[in-house]
Nucleic acid binder design. Structure first.
Lengths: 204, 204
DNA sequence: ACTTTGACTAATATATTAAAAAAGTCAGAA
DNA sequence: TTCTGACTTTTTTAATATATTAGTCAAAGT
């Protein structure tokens, strides 16, 4: 069992390497098998189909992302600094795994039930993480709002919206360079500063 | 001269009707000519090519948009209310002319120089409008920031980002329904409230 | 001169099919 | 239980024919 899980992990890691370099669409199951020096049916022994492997990859990347978020998370810091830190990590993963964008992968991958379900779960996890940040800040008396989960969702969607704006400015199928991401990061930080101040408790 | 301009306007309005109902890609020059009961070469007498006509259409829609913005703009109102009003108008046009999305039109329309130039000009106009709102609010002492044009741009991009997020949730080639737009509008208003509060001058 | 048109050509998109590549399977070996 | 060579099925890609649409032009109407 534990050996089988290890092999599964190895396959996922091999797939991540290919996916994040060439994209999902340009990676075949044969490519992955050859990289790992195993046969294709071996892959299919661990994953019933390519979609399942993709789901596994997405899951793994998000897990790494959340792990790093939690590791770097210092509740004693100010909300603003926590958000800054979080943005840096988020955009780090954004750049590193940009090629993973599922929209560029298999055509109807969004219609896949397992994928939709997984993405919903992961998105909700991220929302929950942000809600937690905001709620702790409220407990500390830094900010105040009746509906923090709602506000966390709004904040996260605004961040993601800014990310999309930056991708769109980049012409199609062009990788985001460091300069573009830095500009984007700055915008997200600026928004975060205004956002936290907008929720802040005025002392008087 | 003035007659020729009138004809030009008629063609543009005819094109808008077709474009906003069927989309740019599904509308042929013949369709437009037939609607207006003129021949195709007549169209080409007023517009050198389809792209020019599209540019004319985009220009006209934006002009209408800006006219309405300015008409409804009441400088004596609070920033927050001005932004609310502006969001309503913006999203009204967004819905009405959703089919006009150029990304769904001719394939390489973004590579067209005249189009890029026109879009840049129009985007800058909108930015300037928002910058004006924020700067007047600063003059009135409602809000404060060293670089208002920068903040206006950030605000506008955040709004547009939220719009994109809502489009993306809608599956491809699906029109945004009233409910979806209302939800989006609410998010934009929520953000606007927090945003203005984040820029507000604390009295003490 | 300014505007319009029918009849045309050139470019582009769509539909069709054939070939290639990739996904996925299976009987059996390690 | 895990793995593989050889296989079938499905999906992409490439090539080509067909149909639509963009765009032109010489000539006619105003």
């Amino acid at each position: 069992m534990i050996v089988a899980d290890k092999k599964r992990e190895q396959i996922i890691e091999g797939a991540i390497k290919r996916f994040s370099h060439f994209g999902i669409g340009k990676t075949t199951m044969n490519d992955i098998a050859e990289d790992l020096s195993v046969s294709k049916p071996s892959l299919y022994y661990y994953f019933p189909d390519k979609k399942s492997l993709i789901v596994g990859v997405i899951e793994k990347v998000f897990t790494d992302y959340f792990d790093l978020l939690k590791k770097k998370y210092n509740p004693d810091d100010t909300v603003e600094n926590i958000l800054f830190q979080t943005i840096e990590i988020r955009n780090g993963f954004f750049m590193k795994y940009f090629m993973l964008r599922i929209s560029e992968g298999l055509p109807d991958i969004f219609n896949d039930d397992a994928m939709k379900k997984k993405l919903t779960v992961l998105k909700d996890s991220e929302k929950a993480f942000y809600a937690d940040i905001f709620e702790r800040a409220q407990d500390k008396g830094e900010i105040k709002h009746e509906n923090m989960p709602h506000i966390a969702e709004l904040y996260l969607e605004s961040l993601m919206g800014l990310t999309n704006m930056c991708i769109m400015e980049l012409g199609k199928d062009l990788l985001p360079d460091k300069k573009t991401v830095n500009k984007m990061t700055q915008k997200q930080k600026d928004l975060s500063s205004i956002f936290t101040k907008g929720l802040s408790v005025n002392r008087h």
